[in-house]
Computed example of a mutant assay.
Amino acid sequence: MEVFVPRGVVTSGVTTSWLVLAGVGLALIVGAVATADRLGTRLVRPAGRLADAAHDLGHGELGVRVPEDGPAELRAAAAAFNSMADQVVQLLAGERELAADLSHRLRTPLTVLRLNAASLGEGPAADQTRAAVAQLEREVDQIIRTARQQKTHAPSGCDASEVIRDRMEFWSALAEDENRTVRLAGVDRTVRVPVARPELGAALDALLGNVFRHTPEGTALAVDVHDGGDASNSVIILVSDAGPGIADPDAALRRGHGDGGPGSTGLGLDIVRRVAESTGGDLRIGRSMLGGTEVRVWLSLNGAGSADPGQRRRGRKRKSRGRTRPKEPAEH
């Protein structure tokens, strides 16, 4: 028995079925591509951030960190990178602390040696001793300059009162030997400033070292801390002495202009000025209540460190015009 089916009935719906199958296949392909793209992005984006952060860290951006997201392997890699970056910052800070501590420890005995060498009188042995002390001071100055060139960009801060007490304890032995009266004010409470402890310690040592080098023995000195609180959003550190004063404050602030004799790097007040301006503050020199020099270090607490340092210096020059300045043989 034969059954004849018309061709139209046999092919009925085949085209529609092929179209449906093609549509389903196309949809599966689009879905697979979209899924692969999402998965690839989830893998590539954290890897790209990690690569960019490693590149920035290699160029000295020590504050860079990576979000710990993405797959488990990339999260572990990001955590390891962040830990490594923290270790690098801590190691660099430790090296700077060591360099600063070395300079602090050497400065006082060198000053005593220079004063003793100056009292040896004349003769070949005395000249050789003075030359050796001068050479040793130049080597220490080079160490200090090298330490200053190592920049750490990670945000940091410290208690200014604690740093001042620590540095004054260091200098108190020399002050006692030279019969100097030392007064501290405002350091009995915590005063937070946006400056790293080594930087603030180096700035204080520069100021106190200037007092000991450029004023006679027995000259009184004072260190005052004024915390303006939330109203002024600033902290002021005053270092005053009863010496002869500074004849040309603008020249004293100029890098490399120092003519304070052996042991002077010409960087002392400039180091202090850069510390102040890194917070958006500034450095000013005037006449103290003790009759000598008053160095006023203004530290801003609002992080306005982007202000133009040149404009601040020009402003200080305009303010200093017309001011009667005392004469002084040596520059800080």
Rank of each mutant, 00 (worst) to 15 (best):
residue 70 G to A: 08
residue 65 R to L: 10
residue 133 V to A: 05
residue 280 G to M: 04
residue 127 D to L: 00
residue 169 E to P: 02
residue 59 H to G: 15
residue 68 E to Q: 13
residue 125 A to H: 10
residue 200 L to D: 08
residue 138 R to L: 12
residue 248 D to M: 13
residue 48 G to T: 05
residue 42 R to L: 15
residue 129 T to F: 15
residue 225 V to G: 15
residue 234 S to T: 14
residue 38 R to N: 04
residue 19 L to M: 13
residue 299 L to H: 05
residue 187 V to G: 01
residue 329 P to Q: 09
residue 256 G to T: 08
residue 272 V to E: 05
residue 59 H to I: 15
residue 82 N to P: 05
residue 54 A to H: 09
residue 50 L to G: 02
residue 29 I to G: 13
residue 112 V to C: 14
residue 283 L to E: 00
residue 199 E to F: 12
residue 273 R to M: 14
residue 192 R to E: 06
residue 4 F to I: 13
residue 159 D to S: 15
residue 20 V to Q: 06
residue 52 D to Y: 10
residue 229 G to I: 12
residue 77 A to E: 04
residue 203 A to H: 12
residue 228 G to N: 12
residue 292 G to M: 05
residue 127 D to I: 00
residue 270 D to Y: 14
residue 208 L to M: 10
residue 251 A to R: 10
residue 220 A to F: 03
residue 296 R to W: 06
residue 142 Q to T: 08
residue 109 P to I: 01
residue 109 P to Q: 02
residue 222 A to T: 00
residue 208 L to G: 04
residue 122 E to V: 05
residue 74 L to Y: 02
residue 243 G to N: 00
residue 262 P to K: 04
residue 184 L to Q: 03
residue 152 T to Y: 13
residue 118 A to N: 09
residue 141 D to W: 11
residue 289 M to A: 15
residue 162 E to S: 09
residue 325 R to S: 09
residue 320 S to E: 00
residue 9 V to D: 05
residue 301 L to S: 11
residue 129 T to W: 04
residue 192 R to Q: 12
residue 216 P to C: 13
residue 60 G to H: 07
residue 293 T to I: 01
residue 19 L to D: 01
residue 218 G to P: 09
residue 40 G to F: 10
residue 104 H to P: 11
residue 102 L to N: 08
residue 161 S to G: 11
residue 328 E to V: 07
residue 325 R to D: 02
residue 21 L to T: 09
residue 320 S to D: 01
residue 261 G to T: 01
residue 228 G to H: 09
residue 188 D to I: 01
residue 14 V to D: 06
residue 44 V to A: 11
residue 262 P to E: 03
residue 88 V to F: 13
residue 38 R to A: 11
residue 44 V to L: 14
residue 193 V to S: 08
residue 294 E to Y: 03
residue 292 G to R: 00
residue 258 G to W: 03
residue 229 G to N: 09
residue 232 S to Q: 14
residue 83 S to R: 10
residue 130 R to K: 01
residue 158 C to K: 14
residue 294 E to S: 06
residue 254 R to E: 04
residue 192 R to C: 09
residue 105 R to Q: 07
residue 127 D to G: 03
residue 21 L to Y: 14
residue 323 R to W: 05
residue 158 C to I: 04
residue 23 G to C: 15
residue 216 P to V: 10
residue 36 A to Q: 12
residue 115 L to N: 03
residue 51 A to W: 05
residue 12 S to E: 02
residue 16 T to H: 15
residue 246 I to T: 04
residue 260 G to F: 08
residue 200 L to A: 06
residue 105 R to G: 06
residue 234 S to I: 15
residue 225 V to C: 07
residue 117 A to K: 00
residue 10 V to I: 09
residue 66 V to Y: 11
residue 120 L to M: 00
residue 181 T to Y: 08
residue 315 G to P: 02
residue 274 R to G: 10
residue 199 E to G: 13
residue 238 L to F: 15
residue 9 V to K: 07
residue 327 K to Q: 10
residue 151 K to H: 13
